[in-house]
Simulated assay, not measured.
Amino acid sequence: MTMPTNDTDARRTLQGLEDGNPSVRLRTALAVGTAPEPRFVDKLVDRCAIEPEFHVREALTWALTRHSPSTTVPKLVDELRSEAAQARSQALHTLSKIGDRRAWPAITRALLTDADDEVARSAWRAAVALVPEGEEPELAGALATQLGRGERATRLSLSRALIALGGEVITPLLRAAMTDPDPRVRRHALATERLSHNPDAGFEFAIEEAKRAVALGTAGREG
């Protein structure tokens, strides 16, 4: 697919992003990213909020990363206030890929604790990618409030985000969480600490080890 040279071709491209065939939408998104055009940014952002196919959403994100951050970042930040969970999640995902720290102030505690797991997970990844030097402890404190949340994928995402912030930052928070009244929080904190020391062991192994330690009442006594 070639990129548009006039208004008629531009309209065809915009229609391609809405085509009923996901293969057409994918090709169109890749074409837009290959030859970036600022006039398509709004449509790319809008499509991210409703695109049902994962691989097409990834192409839309890639296309947005190919445009100037001065154009894309403000529009993506606006999406973070959307009532649609997918709009917030995909905007966060795209901001994490762009990596422009001007978006950092928009990564609020409300997003980090969003009721939608996909939004929260995307916010955790974006926050770790964008956090300015020196603000890691505050971010870690906000993330630690989510220990014990959700199913395996959500807990693993949070563990990875915490580990990415570094042991010196997260160790006191994890040790404190190991004494939490909620056993889910204690298990998750212990599993995160063990995973940080032995990433090759895998999350499932760390969780099972943590379950045993919590059941035996030894969580937080090691080290």
Rank of each mutant, 00 (worst) to 15 (best):
N6A: 13
D7V: 14
T8A: 14
T8L: 15
D9M: 12
A10D: 09
A10Y: 15
A10K: 14
R11E: 15
R12K: 15
T13K: 01
T13F: 14
L14T: 12
E18T: 14
G20H: 13
P22T: 09
P22K: 13
S23K: 09
V24N: 07
V24S: 01
R25N: 05
R27H: 11
A31C: 11
V32A: 06
V32G: 00
G33E: 03
A35P: 00
K43N: 09
K43W: 09
K43V: 15
V45K: 11
D46Q: 15
C48Q: 15
C48F: 06
A49D: 10
I50Y: 07
P52G: 08
F54Q: 11
H55Q: 13
R57K: 10
R57P: 02
E58D: 13
T61I: 12
W62S: 06
A63Y: 06
T65P: 01
H67K: 10
H67M: 10
S68F: 02
P69A: 05
T71G: 02
T71Q: 11
K75L: 15
V77Y: 02
E79G: 13
E79M: 15
R81F: 08
S82V: 12
A84H: 14
A85S: 12
Q86D: 13
R88K: 15
L92F: 04
L92W: 03
H93V: 01
S96Y: 00
G99Q: 09
D100T: 05
R102D: 11
R102G: 03
A103M: 05
I107N: 03
R109T: 15
R109K: 14
A110E: 14
L111M: 11
L111Q: 10
D116K: 05
D117R: 02
D117H: 04
E118D: 14
V119L: 07
V119A: 03
S122G: 07
A123P: 04
W124N: 00
W124F: 12
A126P: 02
A127H: 00
A129I: 00
V131L: 05
E136L: 04
P137R: 12
L139C: 06
A140M: 12
G141A: 11
L143W: 04
A144N: 08
T145W: 04
T145P: 06
L147P: 00
L147T: 08
G148Y: 04
G150R: 03
G150N: 07
A153V: 10
R155V: 01
S157I: 00
L158F: 08
A161W: 01
L162M: 15
G166L: 10
E168G: 14
V169P: 12
P172A: 07
L173V: 10
L174W: 06
R175A: 06
R175C: 02
T179Y: 02
D180A: 13
D182I: 05
A191W: 03
A191Y: 00
T192A: 03
R194A: 08
H197I: 01
H197S: 07
D200K: 14
A201V: 08
A201Y: 00
F203H: 11
F203V: 02
F203K: 00
E204F: 00
F205I: 05
E209Q: 15
A210F: 02
A210C: 07
K211H: 03
K211V: 10
R212I: 05
A213M: 10
L216V: 06
L216D: 14
G217Y: 07
G220D: 06
E222C: 01
G223Y: 08
